[in-house]
């Protein structure tokens, strides 16, 4: 039988709740197999060449699923993958019910000035990222929007990593250093005047893994490259 595109998923999504349209995908909320589910649809980007578009879309769908599995195996919380359709490039993921982004959390906590809680959070993020890098997962798009915080009944909070579309597997300290550099810029531009908080994150990252010191060294190199670059024109 010739491969045909099923209309089932587009029809399903047309009735789902559109949460946001990111740079890569539309994100929906719906009930799927009886569970609250997030559907990530990597729809074709018409601005780019169809060959490039298909290649990127497929690669990112696959990488996202792979890295989630790899993280979960290592005990890093990430949403469960329920179902993947590679023809419509849709991933059906567990909805982390009752969570908020670390970004929103920092924004609201800074207003009420609970510096202890934020320090705890920064340290937790540093530890998780060290663990992720220990597994050679490079996230590729670290921002405080791509981390979710769920408060549990026992008062503890669970930190989830999401949005692994730009992730890949690499053991190179250079790649991991760039991963932190990307986070640093996103962090400091999203949350102005939080340099000490980010320092704390890096310290806890450095303390959490034997592999960390090589990565921090690369991070310093990458930063320097940025500052040294002549900016002509």
């Amino acid at each position: 039988m010739a491969q045909e595109k099923s209309m089932a998923i587009p029809e399903f999504l047309s009735k789902a709740e559109l949460l946001k349209q990111g740079a890569e995908a539309r994100v929906y909320r719906a009930e799927f197999l009886g569970k609250p589910t997030i559907v990530k649809e990597r729809f074709p980007k018409r601005y780019r060449h169809p060959v490039l578009d298909e290649k990127l879309t497929h690669r990112r769908t696959v990488q996202e699923v792979r890295s989630i599995l790899r993280c979960r195996r290592a005990g890093i919380s990430a949403p469960v993958v329920y179902f993947v359709d590679y023809t419509s490039h849709c991933i059906f993921l567990e909805e982390i019910v009752g969570s908020s982004t670390v970004r929103d959390h920092i924004a609201s906590t800074r207003q009420s000035d609970c510096s202890n809680e934020l320090a705890w959070l920064a340290e937790r993020v540093g530890q998780i990222l060290a663990k992720m890098h220990e597994e050679d997962v490079v996230h590729g798009d670290l921002t405080t929007s791509n981390m979710l915080l769920r408060h549990q009944e026992d008062g503890e909070s669970e930190l989830f990593l999401i949005d692994f579309g730009l992730s890949y597997i690499s053991a190179l300290p250079e790649d991991k250093g760039v991963d932190l550099y990307v986070l640093e810029k996103a962090f400091l531009s999203t949350h102005p005047n939080t340099e000490t908080l980010f320092e704390r994150l890096l310290k806890s990252y450095a303390a959490a893994s034997k592999k960390s010191s090589a990565v921090i060294k690369k991070l310093d190199e990458v930063r320097l490259r940025g500052r040294k670059r002549s900016m002509v024109g």
Binding site: T190, M231, V232, G233
Partner: peptide
């Protein structure tokens, strides 16, 4: 441009750099 590649947004009295090239500029 020839020397710069930056994605910038304004907030709290600065043009903040959210993204940029990590090596050479696109130009």
């Amino acid at each position: 441009s020839g020397g710069n590649t930056q994605v910038i947004a304004y907030s709290e009295r600065r043009y903040r750099i959210f993204g940029e090239t990590i090596d050479i500029a696109v130009g």
